[in-house]
Structure formats: C-alpha cells, structure tokens
C-alpha cells in the first residue's frame, strides 16, 4: 500500500522555495510581507521584506566574515610572533592563496589579477557558505534561489563589461561588440562587423545567464533528489515487512547524495568563480 497523505511534491516545493518564515522545528517564526518595504521601479514591484533566504544569506555572510577576519587576525599574530604558521588559519591561508593564484591570477593575468582577487574570492566563499548552509539540518540554500543567482550573475555581467570598458577604453570596448574581422576590410568588413553586433551582445548576455541557471539548477536539483529519496520512506511507510529495508536503503542513498552535495557545493562555487574570472580575463586581453 502506498501512503497518499504525504504530498512529496508539495514538501519539495515548499522546502526549496523562499518564504516569510523560519522553521527550525523547535523554533518557528513567521511574518508577512511588510507593505512599507515595497517600491516600484521599471514596472517591477520590489519588496524588501527579508525572507528565509535573506536571513540565510546574512548568516552565510556573517559566518564568512567571522571566519576570514579570525583567520587574518591569527595569521597576523603568528607572523608577529615569528611562529611557524599552523592550524586552521594556515590551512585557510593556503586555500585562499591557491584560489587567488590558480583561479584569479592565472585567468586574469599577473597585473590585473590581484585587483580582482577580492571580488572573486568573496564571490567564491559567499557561494560556498550559502551552498553548505543549505546542507545543514533546517538550513536553506540561498544559492538555490533564482533571485540570488540572478543578482550574482547580473553583478558578474557588470563586473566583466565595466572591467573591459575601463581597461580597453570606449573604442576598444566597442571592438568587442563590433569586432574587426581578419581578412575583411572596406564596406564588406564594416557590414560584417555590424552584423556581428547583435551576436556579440547576445554572447555577452548568455554567459551570465548560464552562470545564473547553472548555480540555481545544481543547488535546487540536489535538494530535489534528497527530498525525493526521503519521500520514498513516507510513501512506503506502511508497507509492512519491507518498510525497514526501504528506510535503510533511502537513508543510505540520501547519505551518499549528501556527500555528493558537499562536493557539488565546492564545485559550483568554484565553477561560478572561475568562469567569472575567465570572462574578466578574456575581456582584459581582448585586442
């Protein structure tokens, strides 16, 4: 017999969706959208009432700041004391430096790389912390929300394009939209350049779009899989004799997926950050 009272789909949608509530089982908090925090701009209604995902973003940000601030302080103290670096701070330093070098400087270049390092590093760790927070019990994944990933992608778009504008100048930047094609000159070349314009602009927009949906999709899909596997337990909960086996199998699979999700959390943060860095680097070295 399949139990029908539990609507897995509903749980799934409810779990991954944003809400005006916090639910820690032992502590529940619900609120409503504040009408005074609403404003209209460009035909869109913006409501700045904090949601569950806003709270988790703030938690991620706070935790991240605390970690890095502490790491920085410990490192400074170790250096001042002429002590050999050790422990968690040293590990984080190595991690940060590896990211700074392999992710940022390798892709953007030795001259411009260090200037973009704070942005890319913040991006990486913010996404990583948000991803990991979603894996904790009662946690919510802010990066599994299209709004958050869209905001990060829009930011990436502006960073990439503005970095190009500042580096290449207006003329140089226009070349990235209307490229000068090798082996074509005169009226034909001009025509082709103009024809390439819409394609280039579309290319510029598609990249952040992909960033946005990749992160959102990966984070949401993991939760869907975990919840679906958990749903099996509820669906077959009154199947006498088999339910223990199904429960054990589900729990094992969920454990496996959870471990996979930890890897995915790192990989997606890495992917988002490295693609951002690569795109900035491509823009910087466009000639």
């Amino acid at each position: 017999m399949i139990q029908a009272e539990v609507d897995i789909g509903e749980i799934l949608m409810h779990h991954t969706a944003d809400a005006y509530s916090l639910d820690f089982s032992f502590f529940k908090l619900e609120w409503h959208a504040w009408p005074w925090a609403e404003f209209h701009l460009l035909g869109t209604t913006f409501n700045l009432t904090p949601t569950k995902h806003v709270v988790f973003m703030l938690v991620a940000g706070t935790l991240l700041f605390m970690t890095m601030w502490l790491v920085g302080r410990i490192l400074e103290r170790q250096r001042a004391g002429q002590k050999a670096p050790h422990g968690f701070a040293n590990g984080m330093e190595a991690f940060v430096l590896w990211l700074r070098h392999d992710l940022v400087i390798t892709n953007i270049g030795p001259h411009d790389g260090p200037r973009f390092a704070p942005y890319i590093l913040t991006l990486f760790f913010f996404i990583l912390y948000s991803n990991l927070l979603g894996l904790l019990p009662w946690g919510a994944t802010a990066t599994g929300n299209l709004g958050v990933t869209a905001a990060l992608a829009i930011m990436a778009l502006f960073t990439i394009e503005l970095s190009g504008l500042f580096k290449l100048g207006i003329r140089g930047y226009m070349r990235t939209i209307f490229p000068s094609l090798p082996g074509m000159s005169g009226a034909g070349g001009l025509l082709m350049s103009l024809a390439m314009g819409p394609i280039e602009i579309l290319g510029k927009l598609v990249k952040p779009f992909a960033l946005c949906f990749r992160l959102f999709g990966n984070m949401t899909a993991g939760h869907f899989v975990i919840l679906t596997l958990f749903g099996l337990i509820f669906m077959f909960g009154n199947l006498a004799g088999w339910r223990w086996a199904i429960g054990a199998a589900s729990a094992t699979l969920v454990l496996g997926v959870m471990l996979l999700e930890i890897i995915v959390a790192f990989v997606q943060a890495y992917v988002f950050a490295i693609i951002n860095a690569v795109l900035i680097g491509m823009m910087q070295h466009e000639h």
Binding site: A17, D18, A37, T44, T45, F46, N47, L48, T49, P50, T51, H53, V54, M57, L58, G61, L64, F65, M68, W69, V71, G72, R73, L75, E76, M92, E93, V96, L97, A117, P118, Y119, L121, T122, L123, F126, A142, N145, L146, G147, V148, A150, A151, L152, I154, M155
Partner: peptide, 29 residues
C-alpha cells in the same frame, strides 16, 4: 519564482561582505 526584492538583498549583502572582507580579512591573509 524570482523575487525582485531578493536581488536587491543579494546585492546589499554581497557588497557589504565584499567591502568588509576587503578591508578586514583579505589583506591580512
């Protein structure tokens, strides 16, 4: 769903985090 308010929130949180980390964390690391 895409909540426009959340986009603004993300920018605020990220920008604050970026500025704080740039001032208090990354330089020391």
């Amino acid at each position: 769903a895409l909540e426009p308010g959340l986009i603004i929130w993300t920018w605020i949180v990220f920008l604050a985090l970026f500025l704080l980390l740039r001032k208090f964390a990354w330089p020391f690391i």
